[in-house]
Each structure stands twice: as C-alpha cells, then as structure tokens.
C-alpha cells in the first residue's frame, strides 16, 4: 500500500518488492484513469455544451464539441440575472453555514465522543433521529417558525436553520471516536483544560474530517434550493440556485442554454472549495507514537 519499505529488509527482496510495486502502480493508474473517463463524462458535456447555442444543446443525437463555440449563454446569464446580488447572498449563506457547522459540530462531536455528561445518549439519539426525517416533511413547520421569529426574507432566516446540523455532529463524533483516549488523558494529566485539549490536540487531528465536513456542508448549502426559495419572499434575498431555476426552468420548457451556463458558474466555487480543502486529506500526526 504505502511506498515505504524499510531498510531492514534484505536487498534482493527490496528489488522484488520494488518491481512488483511498479507493476501494481501501473495497473492502478490504468484503472483509475479508466474510471475517470466514466465519471467525468456528464461534467465535460455540461462544460462544453455551455458554449453551444440552445439549438445545438437540444440536438439529437447530442454533440460533444461545440460546432460554433459561443460565450453568448454566459453573456445572457449575466445580463438577465442580477448576478452580484445572488452570488453574494449564496456566498454569505454558504460560508457562514460552513463556518458555523465546523465550529458547533466539532465541539458537540467532541463532547459526544469523548466527554461524559448527563443526557449525552439522548442528545445523540435525537441528533441521529432527526437526520432520518425527510426534510420536506418539516418545511411548513419550519417556515411558520421562521415567520414567527421575523426571519422571513432575511439572510439569517436562510442560515440559522442550517447552522447546526445533525449530519456534521454525527460525522465529527465518528472521527473523534478514533482518536485514542490516552492522548487526551495524557494532556489531562498535564492539567490542560478541555478547551485547550480540544483546540490543540483534537482539532489538529481532525483536519481531514474538518475538511470533509467543510466540503460537504458548503456544497449542500450552496446548492440548497427549496428552503431558500420558500424563505425568501423577495428577490433581494434569492440565492443563485433559486435565481437560476427562475430563469432556466419555465412552465412548459427548460432553457438549456441558461441552465448549463448557470450550472457551470455555480459549480466553480464548489470545485474551488473542494480543491482547497482536499489538501488536508493527509495523515494526522502518528498518534500512537505519542505516549
């Protein structure tokens, strides 16, 4: 698996391992590239088709490469949409939601995984339980609540319901569970406060988990459609997906040109966040080495 072999192994064995490794690696690359072709197809089509006129997008059979590439769809998109407003709304909502979840869920996840407190099991049970209720079921009660709090048509109304999500707590709890207790006990023996342990030991060890949570929360928030639509009663609080649906999906027809150009624009920030955060998928410190 790993590319490390140790020096204690006799030389011929190393050579044998090395050449087997090389073959294994080559096979792996072939497989991974093969898989890549299968997974990127629709994305490529989306990207390429966003440069085609509507007629070509709807051609049967579809084409891959644009016959006559054009930026008109993007021009159209930026002309018709009040892009800066929607983008800002989306960004504010997604960033704050993500930061909130990283903070609240890692703290609660730590408590649920490593700290004894009364009501812990009940809390975890409720958290898991709500995760399993389809969200459309709670839409009307949530709206009535938001309305009574005076949060309809505000960005706060879009953020608060998603600021502390069951998904994040479950994720963080599962990851923090795998941090050895001894590590924390050692720190406790040194009279470190729980806050310090959390901040200086747990969080750094959780970097891959936090990156994952960040990626997934940002994506979910950025793409969220139904709630932002319902909770925003005025155009000034619309987010990008709501605005795009407005322009792209008509009563009797879909406008593929706007839709695909919009889909590309919407996906870019998500990819940037992914590329930035996936760097943190690196091994934490070698935990068992610390005693």
């Amino acid at each position: 698996m790993t590319d490390t072999t140790t020096r204690t192994v006799p030389r011929p064995a190393v050579a044998r391992l090395r050449s087997r490794d090389r073959i294994a690696k080559a096979v792996l690359y072939v497989l991974l590239f093969g898989g890549l072709l299968v997974v990127v197809g629709p994305f490529l089509w989306m990207l390429l088709s966003s440069f085609k006129p509507e007629g070509e997008i709807r051609a049967d059979p579809p084409t891959w490469w644009p016959n006559d590439p054009t930026f008109a769809n993007y021009g159209n998109l930026f002309d018709r949409l009040d892009f800066p407003t929607y983008f800002t709304n989306s960004a504010v909502v997604a960033v704050l939601t993500t930061v909130g979840n990283l903070l609240f869920c890692s703290a609660a996840g730590y408590a649920l995984a490593k700290l004894p407190f009364a009501g812990k099991k009940a809390l975890f049970g409720i958290v898991l339980g709500t995760l399993m209720v389809p969200s459309i079921v709670t839409m009307v009660p949530l709206f009535v609540l938001t309305s009574n709090l005076g949060l309809v048509n505000t960005l706060a109304g879009l953020i608060l319901p998603y600021l502390a999500q069951a998904f994040g707590v479950f994720l963080m709890r599962q990851f923090i569970l795998s941090i050895p207790d001894d590590l924390l006990e050692a720190a406790r023996m040194d009279a470190a406060s729980e806050l310090r342990i959390f901040w200086q030991i747990v969080l750094p060890l959780c970097r891959p988990a936090l990156a994952t949570l960040g990626i997934l929360t940002f994506l979910a928030s950025w793409n969220n459609f139904l709630w932002p639509l319902v909770a925003a009663t005025g155009e000034e609080t619309y987010t990008l997906p709501v605005a795009l649906a407005l322009y792209a999906i008509g009563q009797n027809r879909t406008e593929y040109d706007i839709l695909l150009a919009g889909a590309v624009v919407v996906v870019l920030p998500v990819l940037i966040v992914f590329i930035l955060l996936q760097r943190h998928f690196v091994r934490g410190i070698a935990t068992t080495g610390l005693k």
Partner: peptide, 25 residues
C-alpha cells in the same frame, strides 16, 4: 408595484408555506 419573480419549480410549495406563515403578497 414590486414584482417578485418566483421559479416555477417549487412555486407551489412556496405559496403553501407563505399561506401557512401569513407571509403572502
């Protein structure tokens, strides 16, 4: 007159929620 354009997709839900929350135009 202030016109708020609403996407068709989800418009029915939006109206239903707005009636329940008395947030109708």
């Amino acid at each position: 007159v202030t016109v708020t354009p609403v996407p068709w997709d989800g418009a029915h839900n939006k109206l239903a929620a707005a009636i329940a929350g008395q947030e109708t135009p």
